[in-house]
Write a protein that binds this DNA or RNA. Sequence first.
DNA 1: AGCTTTCGCTACGAGTCGTAGCGTAATGGC
DNA 2: GCCATTACGCTACGACTCGTAGCGAAAGCT
Lengths: 209, 209
Amino acid sequence: MQSRSPATRASGRPRSVEADAAILAATREALVELGWSKLTLGDVATRAGVAKTTLYRRWSGKNELVVDAVAELFDELVLPDRGSLADDIEGVVLQFAAILARPEAASGLMAVVAESTRDDALRDRIRSSIVERQKRLVLEGRARAQTRGELPSETDPAEAARTVDLIFDVVAGAVVHRTLVSGHPADEEWVREFTTLLLGGLGAGTQEP
Amino acid sequence: MQSRSPATRASGRPRSVEADAAILAATREALVELGWSKLTLGDVATRAGVAKTTLYRRWSGKNELVVDAVAELFDELVLPDRGSLADDIEGVVLQFAAILARPEAASGLMAVVAESTRDDALRDRIRSSIVERQKRLVLEGRARAQTRGELPSETDPAEAARTVDLIFDVVAGAVVHRTLVSGHPADEEWVREFTTLLLGGLGAGTQEP
DNA sequence: AGCTTTCGCTACGAGTCGTAGCGTAATGGC
DNA sequence: GCCATTACGCTACGACTCGTAGCGAAAGCT
């Protein structure tokens, strides 16, 4: 989705917004059926009912297209207010796990992350359209817990930002690793144990009744 | 590395073991210079000084080749005995982060994980040659900490296994996410904060002096 | 010796890539 | 209502990679 800035002249035939949606949906469909490596832009264009050249006019390549197609999936995430920090964490982690269990999210996300190790522009695109966008969940959760008195309030804003980043890496990383690398589902039981570990640390959990 | 079982007849010209090593080294070299997507098997064969057909006789494709090439990198990991659980964790996490910071590890590992979402045989290959192999570090670390009295001993072996899996997912996932997705280095400061979080949980760390 | 398997090399059809060129469709400005 | 501008669908193209087949030569074992 390359934002055509309103500064540029906007005369002439406008781009079809339906085509954008159709292309992104077709990309996710192709990811499900074919996976990343066998996905071809020609096939996506055919599925979306547009010409291949139209697709290339809007996205520079497979990487950027898949980032945009996958990013939309994560916008579904919401932070439910279940009354306690532990329950809030369990709720959002379960949602995150449900999205990651979908094949289009899993294969697409990991593939573009792999490519981003050699493409700085792609890395920035992933961070801005996926990572930073969902960090809101951690911010909200912490704020709620602090007003509840479950977590101490931070004094140093810089340290608070670092803590948010750390929590996000731990939560997202653990779910991704569990689902995709270990290959086991992040089900309710696992999420409960993970939340216990996250809240209480390594020593806790085993000595509770 | 497809193990030719000793059951099969071993008559005739034996396969060159130097070729195996040369191919895997050439694969890592190509991963550094080209990344996953632009890596071609023909190029790897040329770098290794072997014919392309030789490469196809030993590996069924790009995925399996890269798994084997990357797996060797993680065998360098050792668990140093630094005297305390926290220091042991910091030590091994820093080693893991150093390996992941190498471009051949990062792009190769993420790419094959992405492909493994649609290829069960590949997933098993990754798990057996990388994941399960390194789980020894968690087992050793826990055993040491338990003899030191830093962690309570488990009674139920099944629960102990689940805990080891959980810890492994959290540690590996967090480092991977920090390095590759967030795009920041897992340096000493971050590892220290991560270890504090892992040992004490969310409430701890901020209230320590 | 003779047998067996691997090796390097060449060549091949199939498939994908990303682009160029063309005529047509849909806007906004005058 | 006409015109400049931009997007669209379509076709065609050279370049590249894929994975395999076929060949003669090399390197082992018995």
